[in-house]
Each structure stands twice: as C-alpha cells, then as structure tokens.
Design a binder for these strands. Structure first.
Lengths: 237, 237
DNA sequence: GTCTATAAGATGATAGAC
DNA sequence: GTCTATCATCTTATAGAC
C-alpha cells in the first residue's frame, strides 16, 4: 500500500524545484503546500484522520515528511488546514445564494426555493470542482457522523450558514414552531450528509437504477423530499 | 491458530480471572470475549477502526493483547465481530416488526406505518438496550458515511431488511416508480444515519430546544418527515 | 523550502510458558 | 484461557545540512 515509489521520489519534487516567487493563481495545485493539502484531503476523506500517516501523505505527494511539519506543524494541523480551506469558499457562496434567493422571492418564499438555494453551490462544486471537492464533501460527510469531534467541528465551520437557512425557512413556513424547524433540519442534514458521501450504496441497492453520482438529480429529489418533510413537521398546531 | 467460534456462546463457567461460576448480575458481559467485544464496540464507535489499537482495547478490558488475537485473530477480525454481533438481532426484529405491521394493516398500508414499524426496534434498543446498543448505532452511523468500505459493509449486513422495507413502501404507495422509491429511501437513510449517531449537534444548534437523545421524538418526527417526503417524490407522473 | 538522519515510542502479531 | 516476552515494523516529530 505504501511502498516507496521510485518514480515519484525523484520525479515529483524535481518538477517544482526551480520555481521562484509566487506560483500563478490558476487551476491545479498552485504550490507545494497546496499539493500537500490536495493529497491529504484525498487520503483523509477515504481513510479518516487515524487511517492516514503523514508518511502516506508525503509519499503520495512526492515530498519528505519533514516538509509537512514545516508547513502545518502537526498532523492535526494538516487535518484542520484541509478542513478549513474549502469551508470558507463554500460558506460565502451558500450565504450569497440564500441572499440572492431571498431578494428575488420577496414575500413569496417557499421551502423548495430556500432549500434549493442552500444546495445550489454544492451541486455546482460537485459537478465542476474536480476530484478535490468530491473528496472534501466526503470528508464533511464523515465529520458529521463522528460522535467525538464531529458536532464541534461542524458547528465551528458551518453553523452560520445553517442559521441563515433556518431563518429563511421560518419565513417560508409561517407559524412553524422553532422546535419543529430544527427537527426538520436535522432530517435534511442527514440526507445531505449521506449524499455528500457518494458511497455508491444507493447504486448497489437499486441495482444501478439510481446513481449517487448524478448530483443534479440527487439534490433536486432531496429538495422535493425535504420541502414536503418541512411542511409536514411544521404545519401542525 | 485454533480459533474458538465466537457464536458458540459462553465457553465455560470459569471466564474471568480468579472467578468461579457466572458473574452475579445477568446485566454485564457474559464472558471474556463478550467483554472484549463490548469494550471494542465502545472504542471503535468513538475513534474508528484506525483510531483504536489492540492495546487500547486490551487495557480497557483488563486483559492482554494476546488474548484478543486468540479470540478474533486480527484487529479486523475483532472489528467484524463487533459489527456482526448485533446486526443479526436487529435484522430479525426489524423484519418481524415489518411483517407484523403488514399483517395488521392488511390492504391499508401507509408510509407512516411502514416506516414506524421499520424504526420501532431502533427506538426500543436505543432506549432500553444500555450503552452497548448506543455505541453500536454510532458505529453503524459512521460505517454508512465511509466511502471505502461503508457501502459494501452496509449492504452485506442490512440489505435484506431494506429490501423488505422498500417492498412494503411500494405497496403503500401504489403507482410509485421504483427509481423514486429508492431516491426517497436514500433520504430516509441519511436522516436515520444522523439520528443513530447522536452527536449532539442538534442540541447545540437549537440551543437546547431539541435533544438528540430523545429517541422517541426523534423517530416520530423522522417517520412523519419521511412519509411526507416519500409521498412527494412518488406521487408524480 | 526541501532534504537527510534519527530519536523515542507505539503498533500488530506470534511463540511459548502455565 | 490467559499471560510474559519479544520482534519487526511503523509512527510522529525534531535537528540541522544545503
């Protein structure tokens, strides 16, 4: 599994050795630290924090372990850096998407509309963001299921957006009790988490009838399902 | 390599160190291998397969690491044994619960009824099964989110019950397309997974308004939410 | 920034005594 | 069944050369 690859050793670092100054801000890993983050993101998303050693990351990235410590201090520092990197992008876009929808809908907010706006950036990054974003989503999925640090981590990075989501859903469902709104969100959150994982379980269960990789359909169905769920939970006395 | 069959029940009367006969209370582990399974279940559910060492389990159980190898062969063998132990109990009860409901309801199956019957054993074990069952549920929750072995593991242990669930939902929702039934189940499965985890995230997010530990309410809300979702997804042309 | 070398300890697993 | 002793390997992390 982690055999020393004689090709990646010399070849990998060599290609970026003579670089000077800031790397160009374009696609692909824009520097060694970004490359390390990409590799770590991939491996962490598959095997978890404890299932990946810094040697695994270093070997796969074609650098030495000492370099990871130079950039990120400890293994946990590397993990946190991976988690943080895309969270900021994602949160900004989801807030913007929700705000844009609220502005457009005016007084005619619907649960479907709010939820779709919330999910929209996930669809787009999942479809066009390349493998890095898919790995990141799988990582979030596992974080949300983790009983030790999951709750705290998810809260730290994503609560702002969630609170805005619930705020808009409250407007879309006049008279709803807060308690029901939260319980309904809990169900939506679970569905979202499972979708982000793309574990292929649905494909197998349905004998190929459904493909978890069909993100556009997955999110459209989720919005429809969850909107009905919110209405059912929130429309009672 | 003479490995005892873990299924064969308590091997003999003298199970613990200086002890003779059965442990006084029928509550606790009924033998050393069961004790090891309980400890492993607890630790694996919190830190994952790679986050727990054989030594961690041995120390916590008060036995030597060699004994774990004697009973379970490898670390992975121990993990599998943990996973399998309660799966069989759970599956039998969920199938029985679904069958009982189908018999009682006759031609008047409803999505709420089917889903509630499916969830019922989870409520009961979660409330009355002690910490072991809670740990087990947390373990399932993480398995379902795992992109590497999660899909395969969940399918191996739980597909029979899921297929029966979908079969009954198909009867409760005449005219539904299979594809929509599977997508709807996907959303229910996600909500269930998050609930099983009991990560405390909802408690924090709602400022204590909702308690994830209130299983009866959690599952009642889930059944209502999901039933509406199934109707919304399956009631289209 | 990147590597070499290495410390200091943890890990999964086995052989064999009792 | 249970423990003692041990091994070969892998782990995170640091110091220092270039």
């Amino acid at each position: 599994m982690t055999k020393p690859d004689p090709e990646a050793g010399p070849a990998g670092p060599e290609t970026r050795k003579g670089r000077r100054g800031r790397p160009p801000k374009s696609e692909g890993p824009s520097g060694t630290s970004e490359l390390i983050l990409d590799v770590a993101e991939d491996l962490f998303s598959k095997h978890g924090l404890h299932g990946v050693s810094i040697r695994d990351v270093a070997n796969e990235a074609g650098v030495d372990t000492a370099l990871l410590h130079y950039y990120f201090g400890t293994k946990l520092g590397l993990f946190d850096a991976v988690f943080k990197r895309r969270a900021e992008i994602l949160n900004a876009e989801r807030l913007a998407s929700l705000d844009a929808y609220a502005l457009k809908a005016g007084d005619a907010l619907t649960p479907e509309g709010v939820i779709s706006a919330f999910l929209q950036p996930l669809v787009e990054w999942g479809e066009k963001g390349g493998p890095g974003w898919k790995h990141y989503f799988a990582l979030i999925s596992q974080a949300n299921a983790n009983p030790v640090w999951g709750g705290e981590t998810m809260a730290r990075y994503f609560d702002d957006v969630i609170r805005r989501l619930i705020e808009l859903l409250r407007l879309a469902l006049p008279g709803a009790r807060d308690e029901d709104l939260y319980w309904a969100y809990h169900n939506l959150s679970g569905a979202l988490t499972l979708t982000l994982g793309e574990t292929g379980r649905l494909d197998r269960l349905s004998n190929g009838l459904c493909r978890s990789g069909d993100l556009r359909l997955a999110y459209a169905n989720m919005a429809r399902f969850a909107a009905a769920g919110f209405r059912a939970l929130c429309a009672r006395a």
